[in-house]
C-alpha cells in the first residue's frame, strides 16, 4: 500500500463521469417510471380481477417480470445489445446504456408499485365504487393518491438500484463513475480515482435516499 496521491486525478474526466452517471440515472429513472407505473397498475388490477382473461394476463406478465428480474444485469446488458441498437441506434455510451437499464428496472419498479397498491385499504376502494366511481377513477383518485408514500419509497429504491446498475455499464463502454472506478482502480491499480468515484456514488445514493425518505414522511397522512 503506497501513499495516496490525489493530485494524479484527472478532474475533468471525473466531472464528465459524474455528469454521465447523473444523465443515465435521470433518463433511465424517467423511462422506468413511465413504463413501470402503468405496468404495476396492470399487475395489481389483473391480479384482483375475476375475469379469466385478466387472470391470464397477470400470469403471463408476472412470468415475464420474474424472468427479467432473475437475469443478472451484467448478462442482461450484453444480451440486449441487438435490441438496444435497434432502439437508440448505438449499443454503447450513455445512450446505449439507457435501454438495458430501463428494461431491467421497469419490471422491478412495477412489482414495487403492485405491492404499494396492495397496501391500500380494500374498504376505501369499495366505498368509492359504492359512490359510482368508474374503474379508471378508482385508480386515479383512490389507488394512486392513497399509495403515494409507498410509491415514492418504491421510486427511491428503484433510483438507488439504477445508480448501482450504471456502474456495470462499463462493460459496454457506458461511462459514468462506476465505469471510471473499475477502469482505474481495478485494471490500472490507480486507487485514488476509484476511491473518489466511490465516494461520489456514496454521496449520490445518500442524498437520493434522504430525499426519498423526506418525501415519504411529507406525504404520509396516517
Amino acid at each position: 500500500m503506497g501513499g495516496l496521491d490525489f493530485s494524479k486525478i484527472d478532474w475533468t474526466e471525473m466531472g464528465t463521469a459524474s455528469v454521465d452517471t447523473l444523465q443515465m440515472m435521470l433518463y433511465s429513472t424517467l423511462f422506468t417510471l413511465v413504463i413501470g407505473l402503468p405496468l404495476g397498475v396492470l399487475l395489481y388490477v389483473s391480479s384482483r380481477s375475476n375475469s379469466a382473461v385478466l387472470q391470464w394476463v397477470y400470469r403471463v406478465m408476472s412470468f415475464i417480470v420474474n424472468i427479467i428480474r432473475s437475469v443478472p444485469f451484467i448478462i442482461l446488458i450484453v444480451a440486449l445489445i441487438p435490441l438496444t441498437r435497434a432502439i437508440v441506434g448505438v449499443s454503447s455510451g450513455v445512450q446505449g446504456t439507457i435501454p438495458p437499464l430501463v428494461i431491467a428496472a421497469a419490471p422491478f419498479f412495477a412489482r414495487l408499485v403492485e405491492t404499494a397498491l396492495r397496501e391500500v385499504d380494500r374498504g376505501v376502494i369499495e366505498a368509492s365504487q359504492a359512490m359510482g366511481a368508474t374503474p379508471f377513477q378508482v385508480i386515479r383518485k383512490v389507488l394512486l393518491p392513497e399509495s403515494l408514500p409507498g410509491l415514492i419509497a418504491g421510486v427511491t429504491i428503484t433510483v438507488v438500484t439504477l445508480v448501482s446498475y450504471t456502474a456495470m455499464s462499463g462493460m459496454i463502454g457506458g461511462g459514468g463513475l462506476g465505469d471510471l472506478a473499475i477502469r482505474y482502480g481495478y485494471y490500472r491499480y490507480e486507487k485514488e480515482v476509484m476511491i473518489v468515484s466511490v465516494i461520489f456514488m456514496v454521496i449520490l445514493v445518500q442524498v437520493l435516499q434522504m430525499l426519498g425518505d423526506r418525501l415519504v414522511i411529507y406525504f404520509t397522512r396516517k
Binding site: V124, A130, P145, E146
Partner: peptide, 14 residues
C-alpha cells in the same frame, strides 16, 4: 345510494 361503513373508509390522503 349513499353508504356509510363501520370503519368509515375515508381517503386517508385527502
Amino acid at each position: 345510494i349513499g353508504m356509510i361503513f363501520q370503519h368509515f373508509n375515508l381517503l386517508s390522503s385527502a
